[in-house]
Amino acid sequence: MTPLNRKKERLDGLAASTAAPAAGQAGGVDVMDPVDPVGEAGAVRDAEGVSLLASAWRRLRRNPMFIIGAVLVALFILVAVFAPLLAPHAPDDRPLIGQISASTNPIPKAQDGFPLGGDEKGRDLLSRLIYGSRQTLIVGVLATLGGLAGGVTLGTLAGAFGGWVDSVVMRVVDVLLSLPSILLAITIASLASQPSQWTVIVAIAIVQVPVFARLLRGSMLAQRSSDHVLAARSLGVKRSAIVFRHMLPNSLGPVFVQSTLALSVSIIEAAALSFLGLGNPDDSKAEWGQMLGAAQNLFDLYPHIAFWPAACIVVVSLGFTLMGESMREALDPKSRR
């Protein structure tokens, strides 16, 4: 075994452990002729006679980790959606600009109507935090969707064709995996002459691609040799149909779990890029990572400016992590007891 296989092995193991419930569902739903009740007998069933997905959901509902994570994520999304109603000021409004003087009072204090005070440009910190949830959500979701799209494309190519296509795709993935993710993100972000919101999103998306690709390829390969694919092939189903209707839908389970975790990683890495000066220079629309990055110079004197955006990032990424981890545990057949 070559040494580089470690990271891959972990991803493949992940794919295999969560691919099982999807495959079980496939036995009952996708391939078997609905008219033929014998098909049901082939379906993998839980001991209590519930399908794996249903039993996973039942365990999730009772898991406090999942509930807490889901509540945090739901709150985050609600705040993001209703930001204009919740925030007392616009994110680029400068109502406190008059109180700022560079030498004596660079940061306006908390006061009536401004519970957290202002920032270094005289804007209301609370309003910026509330609006910040929007941009943060957009960055996280777009970066994850980008990574998902790229990863699913590559993973499907590799898993569906196998052979030399698989080898080529996986070599590229290996190269991307051999660099620490934040280093890769910095490398890609610095490619653009002018940093912007989009360079951040693209950089983080590309970092996620190899993880998704490897994960999907793992579960696709497991599907290739499974009975329902063999059955479809022996019935003369076209390869494209086998790939898109039988293999792909059954392989997506672990990928979706991973994307929950990827959302939290995206938000944190966006903050890291901003911190290193590779983030969006335009701060008229607030974004937490950017706010935290901008606060670094004021940290020694005014730590609260950095604390609030950091706290928001921590709470939200904790929410996504809790959800993702408990979903992964619930879908893993080994952990059902």
Binding site: A271, G289, F299, P303, V314, E325
Partner: peptide
């Protein structure tokens, strides 16, 4: 879990502070 959720440079700032 917090270790994963806190951006590492923020941990650095807090410890340094």
């Amino acid at each position: 879990l917090l270790g994963v959720a806190i951006p590492v440079f923020f941990t650095a700032f807090v410890l340094k502070y």
